[in-house]
Design a binder for these strands. Structure first.
Length: 231
DNA sequence: CCCTGATTCGC
DNA sequence: GCGAATCAGG
């Protein structure tokens, strides 16, 4: 089996949809789980919650033991690892509790800059994203200007999200089956139908291959969708 | 044991 | 580029 465009597309879609490599593998057929993973990585897809990589938590508990990761090299070790990344400072450990501002200059009006105004009671609350909210004058040194985090509606399940099930079918959604019946993720396309057809425009292109009638009379209705695509 | 994804490395 | 072999955590 080779990686055709549509197989790659399926791989991408399922991988990003949260399917496991095994599911993707036997959905595609002819490839192993490893092949799927390998291909996914080569495509640049990466790192959905993997059970193995889920470690590396906060081990700041005074672990000066330099773990040199020196397993007995069975074959050949690649010394050209990533020393730069290993020594990367990563995220600076955010102070869990900002130290209470010392009352050094309480009552000193000669501070035009509100930077260190400690007269006001410190207002610290937790925003919806988990970041700390601070009062106007609480600019602690390295607090990021804006957390690069975006609040997202949080799908209930990555797998069944946005999937059109049998119950969701109507005259207005594309009934093109995605996957195979009986499989856990079997669903339907669900796109808006091409008016007058049970499928969306794209799948009309697959359902109705251009077949000229005998005699090569020109087919009266020029199909509103593009010619047959092999996706 | 099973599962998972990550990585390596010969092809 | 591909994927079996291997690694490693759940």
């Amino acid at each position: 089996m080779s990686w055709t465009d549509e197989r790659i597309a399926t791989l991408k879609k399922m991988w990003e949809g949260g399917s496991t490599a095994s599911q993707i593998a036997d959905e595609l057929g002819g490839v192993s789980r490893n092949a799927v993973i390998g291909k996914a990585h080569r495509l640049g897809l990466k790192s959905r919650p993997s059970p193995v990589k889920a470690n590396d938590k906060k081990k700041a508990a005074a672990a000066p033991k330099a773990a040199p990761k020196a397993p007995a090299p069975k074959k050949a070790a690649k010394p050209a690892a990533k020393p730069a990344a290993a020594a990367a400072p990563a995220a600076p450990p955010e102070p869990a509790a900002p130290p209470p501002a010392p009352r050094q200059d309480a009552g000193n009006p000669s501070q035009p800059m509100p930077n260190k105004n400690s007269n006001l009671p410190k207002i610290v609350s937790v925003g919806p994203g988990g970041f700390l909210r601070q009062g106007p004058g609480d600019q602690q040194p390295p607090i990021p200007p804006a957390p690069p985090r975006r609040l997202v509606p949080a799908k209930p399940s990555p797998e069944i999200a946005d999937k059109t099930s049998l119950l969701d079918l109507s005259d207005k959604v594309c009934r093109w089956p995605m996957g195979h019946p009986g499989e856990p993720d079997f669903h339907f396309c669900g796109e808006a139908v091409n008016p007058g057809f049970p499928y969306c425009v794209e799948h009309c292109g697959r359902a109705y291959q251009a077949q000229l009638p005998r005699g090569a009379r020109r087919p009266p209705p020029p199909l509103p969708f593009g010619g047959p695509r092999v996706r």
